[in-house]
Each structure stands twice: as C-alpha cells, then as structure tokens.
Amino acid sequence: MYSSKELELLELLEEKGYLETKMLADLLALDEETIESMLEKFKQDGILLGFRAMVNWQKINRHDVTAFIDVKVTPKRGRGFDDVAERIYRFPEVTALYLMSGAYDLQVVIRANSLQDVASFVSDKLSPLDSVLSTTTHFKLKTYKHDGILFTPQTEDKRLNITP
C-alpha cells in the first residue's frame, strides 16, 4: 500500500507533469532524497511511466490525422484479448490501444499523415489479422479537451440573462 505522501506526489505529478525534485520536495514538505526514492520506487513498480508535454498541434496547422478504430475480434483460448492486442500495439502507427466494453472489443488510436495512410493501415495491417472480425473507423476533427486540459480558450457568455 502507498502512503498519503506517495499518493499526494502521484497526484501532483499527474496534474503538473514533470517538476524538479527540489520543487516537489518543497511542495510536499519532504527532503529531496525521499522524493527521489519515491520516484524510483514508482518507476520500478511500473506506476510512473514517463512524462509528456501536451502540445496543441492545431495552433500551428499541423495536418496529421488521428483515427479511432473500433475492432471486433475473436479472443484466443486461454489468452483472451491479450495476444491480438499485442500484435496490434506493436504497429508504429498505434499511439493507444484499449480493451473496451460494448459493441466492439478494442479501440485502436493511430496517428497518420493522411486519410489514405489510415485506410492503408486498416486494410493492409489491421484487417488481415486472424482474430479481427470487423472494424469501424472514426476521425478526430477537433480537440476541445484532452486529459483535463482545455484546447480552446473559454469565452465569456455575452448573452443577456433572461428572467421571468
């Protein structure tokens, strides 16, 4: 089990991203060695997986394509969905892969240069896999919020209040 300080550290890292060890120590009222020890433990336990910047590519007109592909598969006896998931997440285009409840079993997220590249991925790599029964592809048109971060500035509502 993890202490309240360890959980507090994880929450802080999740909210703020990477911070210097000294800053973390000051915020949590701990010494730097304790923070470093906690971070190393989280890495060894597979809890702290890394740090990434959240970039709004829409602001610089980068025209890549993000696709969400719902996949219905036949699970393997004794392994469930893990074998087919492993085959799928090894493709370099795949940025995320989730086991889902509902009509489809897996959701594959890919980033590509064009719609044609997405189509090629689905037809040449994903659909030919033995376990794949069907796919449905959706395309991201615009990001409003991701991982709790707003991508569009909040605007003040300038409409007049209506009162009876």
Rank of each mutant, 00 (worst) to 15 (best):
M1S: 13
K5M: 11
E6H: 10
E8V: 01
L10K: 04
L12N: 00
L12P: 00
L13R: 00
Y18T: 00
L19R: 08
K22F: 07
M23E: 14
L24T: 03
L24Y: 05
D26L: 09
L30W: 06
L30E: 14
L30Y: 06
D31H: 05
D31Y: 08
E33P: 01
T34F: 02
I35F: 01
E36Q: 15
M38L: 06
M38P: 00
L39T: 07
L39C: 02
E40L: 12
E40M: 07
K41T: 05
K41P: 01
K43P: 05
Q44F: 10
I47F: 00
L48M: 05
L49G: 03
G50P: 01
F51G: 00
R52S: 14
M54A: 12
N56F: 11
W57P: 05
W57K: 12
Q58F: 11
K59A: 15
H63M: 10
H63V: 08
D64V: 15
D64R: 15
V65H: 05
T66F: 09
F68H: 10
F68M: 10
I69S: 04
V73L: 04
T74R: 12
P75S: 05
R77N: 09
R77D: 08
G78I: 04
R79S: 14
D82W: 07
D82M: 12
D83E: 14
D83M: 06
V84I: 15
A85I: 10
R90C: 02
F91Q: 02
V94I: 10
T95I: 15
T95Y: 05
A96P: 02
L99W: 00
M100K: 15
A103G: 06
A103R: 14
L106G: 01
Q107C: 10
Q107D: 05
I110Q: 05
I110E: 02
R111M: 11
R111F: 08
A112E: 13
A112C: 06
A112G: 02
N113M: 09
S114L: 04
L115A: 05
Q116L: 11
D117M: 07
V118R: 00
A119I: 11
S120F: 09
F121E: 00
S123P: 00
D124V: 01
K125S: 09
L126M: 07
S127N: 12
P128W: 10
P128Y: 10
D130H: 12
S131N: 15
S131K: 07
S131P: 06
L133I: 09
L133G: 02
L133R: 15
S134Y: 07
T135D: 02
T135F: 07
T136W: 09
K140W: 00
K140C: 14
L141S: 11
T143P: 00
Y144R: 07
K145D: 07
K145C: 08
I149T: 15
L150S: 09
L150V: 02
T152M: 04
Q154K: 12
E156S: 07
K158D: 08
K158T: 14
R159Q: 11
L160P: 04
I162C: 08
I162Y: 11
I162T: 11
T163N: 10
P164K: 08
P164Q: 06
